[in-house]
Design a protein around this nucleic acid. Structure first.
Length: 490
RNA sequence: GCGGCCGUAGUCUAGUCUGGUAGGACGCCAGCCUGCCACGCUGGUGAUCCCGGGUUCAAAUCCCGGCGGCCGCACCA
């Protein structure tokens, strides 16, 4: 970390998370807790739930998608068909002497200049190593234990321990359920299926809290379309003047370019893809991330997932650099084609009287990463005390009800008001310490509004609303309280 | 997995070199005082000193192994 300011923000988020109940390491009290597993605490659960609700509203509902909730354990054949058994692997080898682990494909490529596809078989790689006399780069030791490290968690199901795997991405459920959903939900191409849930990857080296975990939430959207008609997409019309922030392959800067220009110049291959890229960029703008911190970066062949034919990553700039939040992949016919071959079920569907194998464009969102970015984006360390300037629709606690004095009759009156509000808002009651201390404590976890019950309340049934972002106060009649809060929360 | 640094209450940390089983600050809890933006008073709670093994009469401290964290390499949502 070159800038101290950077690590400070990350550290502050982690401190806040641990101290105030956003998230914490799983199995924390045991020494053998493996890395990469995190528990959400009470405030974190609320934030995550609100983020997912936002995703549902702004993407699933806005676009009229169908949502499913699939099993996390999937059979071996699913991953034979998807290619994950064979391709979701890193070819690795170990140095006999210093035990350094190498990515074989990268190592051979570096030493010989020969392009080595990740999927080249091990025999072939072994031959290349012998032919070119490749040794450990650090100590010159012999390379041993050539193997494929598969990043999926394998399970044994039932007494016979049948092979199955925890899904490494949520979308496979969508592909294997596609046929039934298409038959029963009466949708014509193009249409989208969405799913939010857990995925699992046995990362070699999980790190940086919520940013790279072994068990994590994805919110995925798979758009099924007729590849010949990716440009016949009227929904995209209103988006044509919307400015995307793109970082095309081979360019160092991010450009602002309208969908129309991006299509005309061939930067984006179809109106359908332009539409969904716009939708996802708008999503993060609405989530409170400023435009300059958002970009869609085009991936080259060396970076793309094995199933992708065209790929853009939506990234958000944080103190830790640009973080990939959404993989926007054109998966082509890879998935339905694979499942058609392996399952024997025909995946082609009728579109205007013609049978087509739908292609897939996906928006594969990392939920936990998004939550980190939203937290960091909201964190303001300018003043003496940290303030979490969360958009109100993400605030885990919307309203705090505080008696000015922690004694009667202020406390009774405050509890009464708390009871009045608690079913309609996320409310917390607190009477401990001085009023100023409580304001700051609630600022720290992003509560947009505090309600204070003071001397005047007892006389005329009015309360003070105190706002997190301005520290301004507003006196409101109890009869109008709920309405006023609602307006301010937006 | 590798390399560098690191691991002591909820948080930050003193003590580690020079072994004698932990001290502070903030927080939290209770009471008092004040009464609209933390840092008034009193009392209190709170630490498997990351885990395991070894050396020793004695280990937070020394040695070995492991786990975890940060940064870098690599990988990814």
């Amino acid at each position: 970390m070159s800038e101290p300011e950077g690590s400070r923000k990350y550290g502050e988020i982690v401190r806040l998370a641990l101290e105030r109940g956003f998230f914490m390491p799983s199995c924390e009290i045991y020494g053998d807790a493996p890395a990469g597993f995190w528990d959400y605490g009470p405030l974190g659960v609320d934030l995550k739930r609100k983020f997912i609700e936002f995703w549902r509203r702004e993407l699933v509902k806005r676009d009229g998608m169908l949502e499913i909730d699939g099993s996390q354990v999937l059979s071996k054949k699913v991953f034979q068909a998807s290619g994950h058994l064979e391709s979701f692997v890193d070819p690795i080898a170990k140095c006999e002497q210093c035990r350094a682990i190498y990515r074989l494909d990268k190592l051979i490529e570096e030493k010989t200049g020969i392009h080595v596809p990740e999927r080249m078989n091990l025999e072939e790689m072994k031959r290349l190593i012998e032919e070119h006399d490749i040794k450990c780069g650090k100590c010159g030791g012999k390379l041993i234990d050539l193997s494929h490290f598969n990043m999926m968690f394998r399970l044994g199901v039932g007494v016979i321990g049948a092979d199955a795997y925890l899904r490494p991405e949520t979308c496979q459920n969508i592909f294997i359920d596609f046929l039934r959903i298409h038959k029963t939900m009466r949708r014509n191409l193009p249409f989208a299926i969405a799913q939010v849930g857990k995925s699992f990857r046995n990362e070699i080296s999980p790190r940086q809290g919520l940013l790279r975990m072994r068990e994590f939430y994805q919110a995925e959207i798979e758009v099924f379309f007729n590849p010949k008609k990716a440009n016949e997409f009227p929904k995209a019309d209103p988006m044509m003047d919307y400015e995307l922030r793109l970082k095309p392959l081979g360019r160092d800067e991010t450009i602002e370019i309208t969908c129309k220009e991006a299509l005309d110049s061939g930067l984006i291959s179809s109106r359908l893809i332009a539409y969904y890229l716009s939708l996802i960029q708008q999503f993060y703008e609405k989530a409170g991330i400023s435009r300059e911190k958002i970009r869609l970066r085009q991936l080259g062949d060396d970076e793309k997932a094995f199933y992708a034919v065209e790929a853009w990553d939506l990234e958000v700039e944080t103190s830790l650099g640009w973080i990939e939040l959404v993989a926007c992949n054109n998966r082509g016919g890879h998935d339905l084609g694979g499942h058609q071959r392996f399952s024997g079920h025909e995946m082609e569907v009728l579109d205007d009287g013609e049978k087509v194998l739908p292609h897939v464009f996906e928006l594969s969102m990392g939920v936990d990463r998004s939550i980190y970015c939203i937290l960091e984006n909201a964190l303001d360390l300018e003043g003496g005390k940290p303030v979490l300037r969360l958009p109100p629709h993400f605030a885990p606690i919307e309203v705090a009800v505080l008696p000015l004095l922690s004694k009667e009759p202020f406390t009774s009156k405050a509890r009464e008001i708390y009871e009045m509000l608690k079913l309609d808002f996320d409310v917390e009651y607190d009477e401990s310490g001085s009023i100023g201390r409580r304001y700051l404590r609630f600022d720290e976890v992003g509560v947009p509004i505090c309600i204070t019950i003071d001397h005047q309340t007892l006389e005329d049934d009015t309360v003070t609303l105190r706002f997190r972002d301005s520290s301004m106060q507003l006196r409101v009649d109890l009869g109008e309280l709920a309405e006023t809060i609602k307006n301010h929360l937006g």
